[in-house]
Amino acid sequence: MGEEKINITLNNKEISIKKGASLVDLLSVLDKKPEGIAFAIDCKVVKRQDWEATKLEEGAQITMIKAVCGG
């Protein structure tokens, strides 16, 4: 029996991830470093120190941004 998965929406794209995954796990699955990244869940910004404790739930709408150049 495989591990249980949930569906979440990341920047308007549906993906599945293991149940109980945190934002830190999401970063790891996406193979991204934490620098210059920010997350919001259902349009609410999640503080960096809360990433580990924030478990993703079925249907969560996640916004993930990164640093880019700009004036």
């Binding site: 920047n11 620098e35 993930m64 990164k66 640093a67 880019v68 150049c69």
Partner: peptide, 18 residues
Amino acid sequence: VTVAMKRIDLDNKEDDML
């Protein structure tokens, strides 16, 4: 220096500007 943000594109491996 000013910096901006954009929604991450999972298919695009861009150079880290930071």
